[in-house]
Design a protein around this nucleic acid. Sequence first.
DNA 1: ATGAGTCTGTACGACTTCTTACAATACAAT
DNA 2: ATTGTATTGTAAGAAGTCGTACAGACTCAT
Lengths: 159, 159
Amino acid sequence: MTEVRSSHELDAPPWQRFESTLMATSKSIRRAYDVRLSDIGLNLSEACLLEYVFEHGPMTQTQVAERIGMQRASAGTIIDNLSRRKLLKRLHDPADQRVWLLSATSEGQRMAEKIAVVDNALRSELRRNLSSDERGQLADMLIRLQSNLSQILEGSDEA
Amino acid sequence: MTEVRSSHELDAPPWQRFESTLMATSKSIRRAYDVRLSDIGLNLSEACLLEYVFEHGPMTQTQVAERIGMQRASAGTIIDNLSRRKLLKRLHDPADQRVWLLSATSEGQRMAEKIAVVDNALRSELRRNLSSDERGQLADMLIRLQSNLSQILEGSDEA
DNA sequence: ATGAGTCTGTACGACTTCTTACAATACAAT
DNA sequence: ATTGTATTGTAAGAAGTCGTACAGACTCAT
């Protein structure tokens, strides 16, 4: 039924160039993570945020938002959610009344471990085809693309 | 103000691996296109769809949706929009009463040419750093990733 | 010819993320 | 001390996409 997918999304989108393939691949990666993570009741953004807080100690909402590449407001929504589900807690910072210090609850820590399992499994399936060298090259090229992009986007900010 | 962006999004997201970089890059590409295309009053999805219909003759909504990697319903919304703005028209197919045949109006054609200009400009800025060989390798790796992904996603469909 | 199954476009609601605006708090300069 | 500026989290609304469900139109085997 959808077996044609793998080819469509490669040659068709915007203007059949690698930019399109890259965006389609990104979409699929997100989808794959969302599907796998739904087993433990999370989506990629939630998992991402929780894992990041778990690994990098207590931090403010703005900090985690910046690190995972998301707006403060959006992160706030996700944090509301995770803390309602008792995976994350908000602690007062005695040194700064404006901020919350985020920290994983013990339940959140168990969840973070499950996330790591899912992540490792999926990542190894994803890399089946790619040698370590290739992955390095890929990352390198992506970083160069990113630096071009940040110039492009900076340019239009000041306008 | 946002000059730090370029580095965050490279080393930080989900689990600082190339998967994250890829997704961040994709996000930036979309953003860059959206910014540039806003000059002519479109976003990437609209431009994509219009350009595709312009280039690949009259086609049904389902067809264009599949080609640009989007759900039928979502494409329908975009088409509503483009046809309200007289860039696209819906024609009856005498052979099949169910479908619309999409076709660019003359105004839509002029718009498609503007899109091509924006696209060419942006693409060349984007590739500044990458040799033709490298772009080939990049595309190749992305395609391999896609094929892994389609296996992964197929697997979870039948479940 | 006719009924079962398939396909098309659309309506509707959900979800995610963005943008903008704001009140509370912090900080720096006078 | 006071005042102006920055920063934090949140609220409210917009936009984009998805998934589901549906009615109408097609197809094909009987």
